[in-house]
């Protein structure tokens, strides 16, 4: 029994209109149907935060949404951050501060941080930690990610000023 249902949404600025299996998660849709494999899939029950994307600008677990529920929404994935070869300030900051090692969690962190910094270019350390606590990283110990957020905030703040 396969239930195909229509979905129309925007993904990284592009209109996507197609049929999807009703049971397909948004994470799998992005990866397997659209080829956007930058979004990684970790725990598949909302705990690890690795599959974070932005839905209408808000951080969302793409494993906890059905693809069909993207209907009418604006989806942004990690692929939307860089402008061609020009890295986003968050990506630059992760490089400079060694905010990643294996890289498996990185897209999830970056999208949560993107949500934070687009709404607040001068977050306090507690505000940053509150956001970082929503994702799991097993390599870095989080301190380098914390430094990367501060670095990115400075870059984005000065760019916006």
């Amino acid at each position: 029994m396969s239930a195909l249902v229509p979905v129309k949404c925007h993904v990284n600025g592009r209109v996507v209109e197609t049929m999807v299996d009703a049971r397909m998660t948004l994470a799998d849709f992005l990866r397997h149907e659209l080829g956007l494999t930058g979004t990684h899939v970790g725990c598949e029950h909302g705990v690890c935060g690795i599959c974070n994307i932005l839905v209408d600008g808000q951080t969302t677990r793409s494993c906890l949404m059905l693809a069909v529920q993207a209907e009418g929404h604006e989806i942004r994935t990690v692929e939307s951050l860089s402008d061609g070869d020009k890295l986003h300030p968050i990506q630059e900051a992760f490089m400079e501060e060694h905010g990643l090692q294996c890289g498996f969690c990185t897209a999830g962190f970056m999208m949560a941080i993107c949500d934070l910094l687009e709404n607040n270019t001068n977050p306090s350390e507690d505000e940053i930690k509150d956001v970082l606590g929503g994702q799991v990283c097993r390599c870095t110990g989080y301190n380098t990610i914390l430094r990367a957020v501060k670095n990115a905030a400075a870059k984005m703040g000065s760019a916006g000023a």
């Binding site: 009703a22 049971r23 998660t25 598949e44 029950h45 494993c63 906890l64 529920q69 209907e71």
Partner: peptide
């Protein structure tokens, strides 16, 4: 919101034949 139901679906602890989405 699906934040409890989706894990149950993903883990197949819930196997409904119909999901009635209230979001619309």
């Amino acid at each position: 919101g699906g934040q409890s139901l989706m894990p149950l679906l993903n883990m197949r602890l819930a196997r409904p034949s119909l999901v009635l989405d209230l979001n619309h």
